[in-house]
Design a protein around this nucleic acid. Structure first.
Lengths: 360, 360
DNA sequence: GATCGTGACTAAAACGATTACGTAGCGGGG
DNA sequence: CCCCGCTACGTAATCGTTTTAGTCACGATC
């Protein structure tokens, strides 16, 4: 029975409709055993002894029938899925999305695909998804901003994970350096009363970041007042969280001239809160964010922030997990890879004395 | 040889390390044939005649050895992968991320996983990725903001796709309504000279959106001047694009009091450009965005925009593709599903006459 | 007492590859 | 002339399920 869409479909033109041909049929067609065809197609070393002419015949037939090895059959046999599981708190969050972008680049390039699962910080999901991934036989796992405790049968790489777990490689920012960049910048601008927004309890960077800040502040002789630190709560990826805690901070009437936020999102909320209480940014209060997500540059005013090379971190995570898959033993005890932050000065920071001049 | 991590591991406690047990072993253990065990585990109707006691024995054993069916073996046999391929221009783009979030919600809930591939509008990738997906035997495909021409062997659903292709269901916004919301709003505020930023040529919403705008403008008696319309170019997901074309627009010195941008991202760039030429937003120029991405609400001032229910569109896409997978024939000729936009008035629009009063 | 139905399973053929091992034919060395 | 070692393949087992078509025993029915 002829196809509706006439003409074009016949002959060598393959629609993506016809059921793919199997190795067996293909072998039958060229008059060889499936084994032989398989060896040739996979360029196995064993096939070295097969004359070029035969190989060509096989390749020609493969092309003619648009042969694609059945992925499941192959995976079943080889125990490899060329698939990586990626866990993130939430795909639509700028941070995770940026990291994923880097991960994807590298994985697809290397012939891997990946599954994504967003756990939204729900402990049950954080527990369940790795199991589901394993049920799908992923070759490895990447966990982004996700607390990690399991020791799995496959390589695991975390981005911004800080737990030392067997079989897990952590890709982390140099938080000490990050704190130094931000605090030195503010110090140079003459700020001494600095408020801080800490990350949520569940965020995997919170502790490491905060320790680094305290450490660096001590070294720089900067006071860190508990009255001037607030902590984000709730897990929505919205500036609302930063807005709320900044309101709280302002309510204490404890004076400060600068604010160092846990991330750009909360910094945006903070700026709004500051504005609403009549404070100008940066003239009255300088604000420094963290991450440098896409929209940071296009805030008004542009957000000064500590950039995490998120895309790069994703790429490194992908590279690492693949390396560990192919060279299992060798790389198994790679515990941590550190990447360097960068300070991006835009328009939400200025000298602490700017108050007077700006007040026209 | 005992495990390093002593004690806890023995007995019923399963680490995620041990090689999973196969159906055959399990059957051997309970003294039944693999077939029987399979039937029971899958709650097949054929197993109805098997006494509850036997079933219990099987389930108990399955739990004891933490039996998980091998996914590849099952998929190989059943020709189903419970996997959907999702194509987006770029994961780190707010629009796509939001849609994905909705897609994910529904898919995971239904026991599906999904692959993501970002094509960055490269035609070769737009062509290649569907093939790769099929090579992985996905059960269906969702294409977000991606021009689509193929007629595949599996159900395809697009989000914001506008081509009528056999076997494809398009989830689209009611652009007419969207245009009406935005234009009526501006009209009511007294704007008559409205500038427009059109989407990039390759964006799948561009044409439909623009046609709707022209149509509605005509109906409302609003002039649409080609001198006041510019078009985005380039495929970076950055406000820079909107910034550039707005600069160009301003260079013509053609007067306008309002600007309707193609999306929020370009609106942000536009605002920056307007500010830089000394125009205040909204006092001198009102700006309306499109999409209502996360950061729109937290711009300063908050962006007035036409909201697309992106998450919902993702969810509908997921539902639709699954429905079409399970009820193939029935739903095959579902061509289009329309969702309604919503106007979100924030702070970038105000009455056209506001110029004078605001000029202190 | 032959037949029938049914309850409780089992046998075996797929699904589509990969891969260790085997072997037929042939030329050459001893 | 025999055996060795290539070359060029083929055989068959295996991966772990699903599913159709039986089988077998036993009690009921005519």
């Amino acid at each position: 029975m002829p196809r509706k869409r006439s003409g074009v479909d016949k002959g060598a033109r393959h629609t993506l409709h016809e059921r793919p041909i199997s190795l067996k049929k293909l072998a039958e067609y060229v008059g060889l055993a499936p084994a032989t065809v398989s060896l040739v197609i996979n360029r196995s070393a064993v096939a070295d002894s097969i004359p070029q002419e035969t190989k060509d015949r096989i390749f020609a037939a493969a092309r003619k029938f648009n042969y694609r090895p059945n992925f499941f059959a192959r995976s079943l046999r080889t125990q490899r899925s060329f698939t990586i599981g990626v866990m993130v708190p939430e795909v639509s969050d700028g941070y995770a999305a940026m990291v994923m972008s880097g991960i994807e680049d590298h994985l697809l390039q290397e012939g891997y695909f990946y599954f994504v699962a967003s756990h939204r910080h729900r402990p049950d999901l954080i527990d369940e998804y790795p199991r589901l991934f394993l049920g799908r036989s992923v070759d490895g796992l990447i966990a982004v901003d996700t607390p990690w405790h399991h020791d799995l049968a496959v390589p695991v790489v975390t981005v911004s994970g800080h737990n030392e777990v067997k079989g897990v490689t952590n890709i982390v920012l140099d938080h000490e350096r990050a704190a130094e960049l931000a605090l030195k910048h503010l110090l140079q601008l003459g700020h001494r009363k600095i408020a801080f927004i800490k990350g949520q309890e569940f965020s995997s960077d919170t502790a490491a970041r905060w320790n680094a800040i305290e450490e660096v502040a001590r070294r720089l002789g900067l006071p860190v007042s508990s009255k001037l630190t607030v902590q984000l709560e709730g897990d929505s990826p919205s500036p609302q969280l930063g807005y709320k805690v900044t309101k709280k901070l302002l309510a204490t009437h404890e004076p400060f001239t600068a604010l160092f936020a846990f991330n750009d999102i909360s910094a945006m909320g903070a700026i709004r809160a500051l504005r609403e209480s009549g404070k100008r940014v940066p003239e009255d209060v300088s604000v420094v964010g963290f991450d440098d997500i896409q929209s940071a540059a296009y805030q008004n005013p542009g957000l000064t922030t500590v950039r995490q090379p998120l895309r790069k971190m994703g790429k490194i995570a992908a590279e690492t997990v693949l390396r560990r898959i192919t060279r299992r033993a060798v790389e198994a005890n790679l515990k941590e890879i550190t990447v360097e932050p960068e300070l991006v000065v835009r328009e939400t920071t200025c000298a602490a004395g700017a108050r007077e001049e700006a007040q026209e």
